[in-house]
Design a protein around this nucleic acid. Structure first.
Lengths: 162, 162
DNA sequence: CTCTCAATCGAGAGTCATTCTAAACTGACC
DNA sequence: GGTCAGTTTAGAATGACTCTCGATTGAGAG
């Protein structure tokens, strides 16, 4: 969960211009573990920047992702999500309410095995797979969050299936 | 890679009606390891069923997935893909050409560790993750296929990024 | 064989997230 | 002031699905 200053530093280092729109996006992303969609980011920004265009949000998020300030997540479903957390980690997605939660290597493990595999599994180094050059491994845990398991009906904090 | 007869058997067992459209879809899916999109399936069908509607393909694929005859894959990107292979397996996606390839537990392993983790990793049993009830674990290897590594320019067998 | 009813199909419109386009703006440098 | 690259903006376009609703089909009843 990088703080605003951390993201700002990355943006500065990337050589991209520091426009008010981009800074506002960083503010939206800072300390945000909800994996916001472009829509979420836009919604959070229009209050302070009423003239903001949707296309700008897409452009800026794209540029930031390109520059390594945040990460584009394509976790299935039709929407792009953005994650300021660049540490290697996995995601748990609730089939009920659609909420997404980070799963870190040091998170609690299923009996006998860490979710992100004890050692050497999540290293960012490329690996081989008969000719296929692996650059990145994504892991997605799908299931039900505690809230959705309890109340049969999902509590709609997030957008459900569609 | 289930054969046509296998899929047919599953469809029969599901209690769904065996319509010509559905049988044609099964024919498209049988022995197909290319993870076709709805569009691909449709393209393969219009030749023999020129009156076919796109909506029918979506309906039928949805029904088949629901019935457990095939699997809906949401591997990121904007398109749904369908996979007749229901065995637990992972997917390797080429960042260059977008091709998708199955990765099985017994596939060649990165030095010292199997892609689908030697044992107990891909079992279908639910697991715990502080309150999160894991039903399914998806793993996606992203990187470059051998063809894209060789020729710098991706060979466009499949749709590239977008 | 004819009816009836539910399941399914088909055409086209609708929805939604995202991308494109072209014009306007901004700030740095000459 | 002029020029240029990088950005922003509005709005149109795109593409993948989804919905609606009337038409068709087919299994079983009579």
């Amino acid at each position: 969960m990088p703080a605003y200053e951390t993201l700002l530093e990355k943006l500065r280092a990337s050589g991209l211009k520091m426009t008010p729109q981009r800074l506002a996006i960083l503010r939206q992303l800072a300390d945000n573990d909800r994996h916001p969609t472009a829509q979420d980011v836009y919604d959070g920004m229009v209050a302070e920047q009423p003239t903001l265009s949707f296309a700008t949000v897409y452009n800026a998020l794209g540029a930031l992702a390109e520059a390594g300030v945040c990460e584009r997540l394509e976790l299935g479903g039709t929407v792009l999500r953005f994650d300021p957390n660049l540490d290697p980690h996995d995601h748990a997605i609730c089939d009920g309410c659609g909420s997404i939660r980070d799963v870190h290597a040091d998170d609690d493990a299923p009996p006998g095995r860490a979710p992100a595999a004890r050692a050497g599994a999540r290293e960012r180094k490329p690996r081989e797979l008969t000719g296929f050059h692996v650059r990145r491994v994504e892991r997605i845990f799908r299931g039900l969050c505690s809230a959705c398991r309890r109340g049969g009906a999902p509590h709609d904090d997030h957008q459900p299936g569609r």
